[in-house]
Amino acid sequence: MRRLPYLAASTGAAVLFTLPFVWLISASLRPREYVFGTGFLPLPFAPANYAEAWSAVPLPTWLFNSVLVGVAAAAAVTISSAWVAFGFAYFRFPGRDLLFGLVLATMMLPFAVTMIPTYLIWSELRLTDTQVPLWAGNLFGSAFYIFLLRQFLLSLPREYFEAARVDGASYPQLFWKLAFPLIRPALLVAFVFEFKASWTDLLKPLIYLRNEELFTLPRGLKVVLDRFGYGGEQQWEVVLAGSVIATVPMLVLFFLAQRHFVEGIATSGRKG
């Protein structure tokens, strides 16, 4: 009985957060004149909206681009951040805490501050209107993921690493063969977080991409909104169907990785 208020509050919050997505799915399955009708049942039922959205714009190409950029961005930031986190967790040297504090301080810099200098760098490298700027910056790590992974690494007994060093393991071997398997839940958290950030990022594609064949889903949905929504043909059922198509892959990813994802967050918070 003591858990009933907690369960009731959790259920209410879950329903509240789920309602907008339920409405999105329902509205995407209605004919044009019924899109903004009341209720959550898709009546009349019009599943052909998805076929129309799929054929009206190159959604398969944008989906592939989003998956490609998302995997590249997530893998790059996860591995590079893990390397830096291992250095801060394992090595002891003068000024380590100060240097780590400076790394964390970079999180205080808003993207708007570095946006123009970053664009000028990619422009000088002649990589604008390519997908490289969307993920290559992650090769230098992320302060948030460095912090997350360092806290996880500090929870590991140092004796494991010392014993491996006695057996002749090199520092790269310590990372790849010992640390990397032990921090797999935290690595998965970083990967999923960054994949989601890349999947929903609109600003970078707006800045760097001009060729429609290179668009990711958020940039493509902006085209759909301009063409079929505001100032367009007012075909909101196409816009909503495209939004559902863009959302479903992230839901699938979360449910597939849910157990490891929750384990990684819980372990990091408990041992950090």
Rank of each mutant, 00 (worst) to 15 (best):
P181I: 11
A27T: 05
S268N: 14
L225D: 02
A27I: 02
V189K: 13
A143M: 09
V15E: 06
S66N: 09
A27P: 03
P42I: 12
A48Y: 11
L178I: 15
L188H: 12
A136Q: 04
M107G: 05
I207K: 01
V103M: 01
W135H: 06
R3S: 15
T130E: 13
T267W: 13
S268V: 13
F180V: 09
E233W: 13
A74F: 01
Q151Y: 11
A27C: 07
G95D: 03
I121G: 02
V71G: 07
V189S: 12
P110C: 00
V238K: 05
W62E: 04
A76P: 06
R227N: 11
W83D: 03
R92P: 03
P20W: 10
G37E: 08
V238W: 05
T216P: 02
V67I: 15
F254A: 13
T38A: 13
V192R: 09
S198Q: 13
V238A: 05
F40P: 07
F191R: 10
V22Q: 08
L98A: 11
P20V: 10
G242V: 09
A72N: 09
G141R: 00
I183K: 07
L256E: 10
A197T: 06
W199P: 03
F93N: 01
A241F: 05
A246S: 09
A27L: 08
N49G: 01
A9N: 02
F152K: 06
L98W: 03
V223I: 14
R259Q: 14
V252Q: 12
F100M: 00
F100I: 04
A266Y: 10
I245D: 02
I207T: 15
S26R: 05
T106M: 01
L240A: 06
L149H: 08
T130A: 11
E213P: 07
L43Q: 14
R270V: 14
Y160E: 08
D129M: 12
W199I: 08
W54A: 09
